[in-house]
Write a protein that binds this DNA or RNA. Sequence first.
DNA 1: CTGGCACTTGGTAACGTTGACACAGCCTGG
DNA 2: CCAGGCTGTGTCAACGTTACCAAGTGCCAG
Lengths: 346, 346
Amino acid sequence: MARSNASSVPTVRDVAALAGVSPMTVSRTMSGGLNVRPEVQERVREAVEKLGYRPNQSARNTRLSKPTGLIGVAVTNLGNPYYGQFALGVEDVAAAHGRHIVVGNSGEDPGREGSLLADFAARQLEGVILVPAGKGGNPLGPRQLGGVPLVLATRTVEGVECDAVLVDDANGAAAGTAALLADGHRRIAFLGDVAGISTAQSRFDGFTQALAGAGISLDPDYLVVVRETDAAACAVRRLLAGPNPPTAFFSANNRTTVGALRAICEWRDGVPQRPARQPVPALASFDDVELADLLGIPLTVMSHDARALGAAAARLLFDRLDGTTAPAEASPAPRLVLMPVTVRRY
Amino acid sequence: MARSNASSVPTVRDVAALAGVSPMTVSRTMSGGLNVRPEVQERVREAVEKLGYRPNQSARNTRLSKPTGLIGVAVTNLGNPYYGQFALGVEDVAAAHGRHIVVGNSGEDPGREGSLLADFAARQLEGVILVPAGKGGNPLGPRQLGGVPLVLATRTVEGVECDAVLVDDANGAAAGTAALLADGHRRIAFLGDVAGISTAQSRFDGFTQALAGAGISLDPDYLVVVRETDAAACAVRRLLAGPNPPTAFFSANNRTTVGALRAICEWRDGVPQRPARQPVPALASFDDVELADLLGIPLTVMSHDARALGAAAARLLFDRLDGTTAPAEASPAPRLVLMPVTVRRY
DNA sequence: CTGGCACTTGGTAACGTTGACACAGCCTGG
DNA sequence: CCAGGCTGTGTCAACGTTACCAAGTGCCAG
């Protein structure tokens, strides 16, 4: 009566005792029942039911051989719908490989990202898909994960060698900018980050290169470094009210797009006496925003499929995990997948 | 040389050997270094660094005493921005209690929900916050979780006795409907689910009760059971093109709202020759949708703060986990928190 | 000088589970 | 009738970590 059913969680031993068999038979029954007589299995199952026994995964994993069946997904902002879709894409593929996903949030903070990854590794996750926070100097260490396969998604990090799925940011941004230029826009303001995050940098590069191709250099007043919705709205309001308002805006991510749309709508609807020669400014947006196409604002959307991107990242990961690649040092060259960007006009 | 550094993950033993101490000293150093000489700690830390050692959480958890520090969050649709905000709210509170969150997705499927919960329990999570999938007959068992504290959020399930945070759905829906009625609308169509999910049921009840209070009975043609965005858009298109179009729509969730908005905008913009006596239909929407207020459609939004709801659910959970309530049977009565619904007009 | 205490360190066992092996009983083919 | 295989079951040990206790060291008070 030492340590058996003291109201704590039941173990194999408790079940074994109740069913009158050895713990090993319980274990075998729980994992398929190979070489266990059906009637004994029945007895074991009854005991399991009666005690409410659940195998302890932690203990299982100690036996080192069996993997955990978990894939980590670390994103920078759980509140951004983009990452919800992204996680769904990872999950689609993970489920097809019999794995579950664990979603963690770094909140764009390299410190939290680091501890999140460390935690993932410590919990023996089989692989991690990371949207790096960038910004901080932390290059997430040479292999902070201690051997756990890592795939970067959406953004990359200088000096980290691993598989990655990125968006064709520079070309997409250039194409979107070209569309604005083709419409005759010459005074175009940029909203977004310009450094720290690879994505932001590439989009800015694509934007300025397209401008340069048209012989236009970016007016410093038109370069607005913002990351949040409200800040973007304020900036757009300020520019539109200023002496030399741009005729178009380039928004580098979906958060700034929402702010820009809000400010432009305000300006359009709230200033009925605006001079007729000043039409509603156009907006080119990187990433789509639900309902944006219905606002009646000249809109150019450079978008990609977040769910497909997540799925692609997961496929890279499972190529390494379950792939038929040579078992010894199966990771010779980091692979890079570029998701195409489509440009749509509204 | 039996099993030491065979390129596999290093263990306490490897570190101990390299540092010339016992595994116990390594363990002590890793957990605060109480009663370990500073110079020895330094040596251990060097060895840890050199080998890239990470304590194995699974093995730690086997020692039963230490909890895992993980809180499970199971939602029905990761792709819905609502649940992103919700998860952020849970995380806010969890972080304040030194825990991490694990987000899982049931995809509105009771089967997946069940296996998700079982998995959470098997991995020794300390508590679970669940948005139940409803629909299926599965009442998630008496205590499928085997003692792991459970909090329901957003929706409830018949016959399950545990803490829950719900939205004041019925009153909110009634208030929103009253606003439509006050504007003179009499022909109001309902878009949404009516059964299976407690939330949908309550919102429908609030809607019909408000109608009944005004002496209106719901035209069966105006009751549209839809769950997805596209289906809602189709239904609205059909009703608006029909012989007896409603003058207003009540949309029971943010997915159907997006569809309704799309269809109404199409109708408004695509039918310029529409008779002047048929104004743009109004929409009352349960849950907010970004940018919806800018569309120029008469809009009534019944919304609540998803992040606050998640935080409230987490607080209920941590009351049970860390609370100063009596340790023995600390769960006498299930508690219910109702989140208020605000009605805004645009 | 000695007894006791505080501080360090190591050995042993245990957490819950399962792989490897052992063994008993039965069946089949020679 | 027996060798060899297959089936069903149990025993043992190990996974990586840490709680517990014992033992060793040094220091100070008596």
